[in-house]
């Protein structure tokens, strides 16, 4: 267990708990903000049809665009806004990464709900925003949880923007892991490298193992139509 002990030891140069904390914070920001933005939009798209022809395809197609093409302008913008090397800055980028899948899952989930739910709430005097907050959001909880799990895992695993937009204070686990490879000098420390990879991969793996029923169950439900 010497390699694990070395990995977990905090030094001036290496702090695995800092990297884990940064990944956790950025992933939580990136996932929560994506859901906060996607849920109202998904409601408007599924029920009102507003954004179905332009907004929805534009966002879904973001998955096909390599986000590296935005690297230089985003770096400059973040420098200007003071967001470089911050957890919030990384979280904002992870929001963009998470938006397409969150929107697809939520639009599908809301489309599956009977329209009578909205109509009944409206007859009871609820306005559109109350229907979203008090009827749609609670009923869509499984889809929201699924989006959250997928988003968190995707955000935790992101490497490119972590490498580009952070230097010391907000370095995420995926980037921090690479610091251990030649930590002691004299070539790659393969034992240490393996240990840090296992530690870094554990949180999303545990989340996936614990929540696999939620993921498969909710996605299967989204595909079923009576």
């Amino acid at each position: 267990m010497d390699n694990y002990a070395s990995v977990l030891q905090v030094t001036d140069r290496l702090n695995i708990f800092g990297y884990l904390g940064n990944s956790l914070a950025a992933a939580l920001i990136g996932t929560t903000l994506a859901l906060v933005l996607a849920l109202p939009a998904a409601f408007a798209i599924a029920r009102g049809g507003i954004g179905r022809r332009l907004l929805m395809p534009a966002i879904v197609n973001l998955r096909a665009v390599p986000l590296i093409i935005f690297a230089i302008p985003l770096y400059m913008m973040f420098q200007w806004l003071g967001l470089l090397d911050t957890q919030i800055g990384l979280g904002l980028i992870l929001t963009i990464v998470n938006l397409p899948l969150a929107l697809v899952i939520l639009v599908n989930a809301i489309s599956d709900l009977p329209l009578e739910l909205d109509e009944a709430a409206r007859i009871d005097g609820a306005n559109t925003f109350q229907i979203l907050a008090q009827v749609i959001a609670p009923v869509c909880r499984p889809a929201i949880v699924t989006s959250f799990i997928f988003g968190f895992i995707t955000a935790w695993n992101e490497f490119l923007f972590g490498l580009m937009l952070t230097t010391s204070k907000a370095v995420p686990m995926t980037v921090g892991a690479s610091f251990f490879f030649a930590a002691s000098g004299g070539g790659v420390q393969w034992g240490l490298a393996s240990a840090v990879m296992i530690v870094g991969a554990l949180p999303p793996m545990l989340l996936g193992l614990i929540m696999y029923k939620q993921i498969s169950g909710s996605m299967t439900a989204g595909a079923v139509k009576g």
């Binding site: 906060v36 408007a44 009102g48 907004l55 534009a58 302008p73 929001t95 963009i96 938006l99």
Partner: peptide
């Protein structure tokens, strides 16, 4: 109702305009 739907979409659209619209314009200009 139409206004409500548009208001619901607004935060997402504003976020995308800021974090993707600006980089796209800068990229094209560069």
């Amino acid at each position: 109702k139409n206004l409500d739907w548009k208001l619901l979409n607004t935060p997402l659209v504003l976020f995308l305009l800021l974090f993707l619209g600006f980089p796209v314009i800068v990229n094209l200009y560069y």
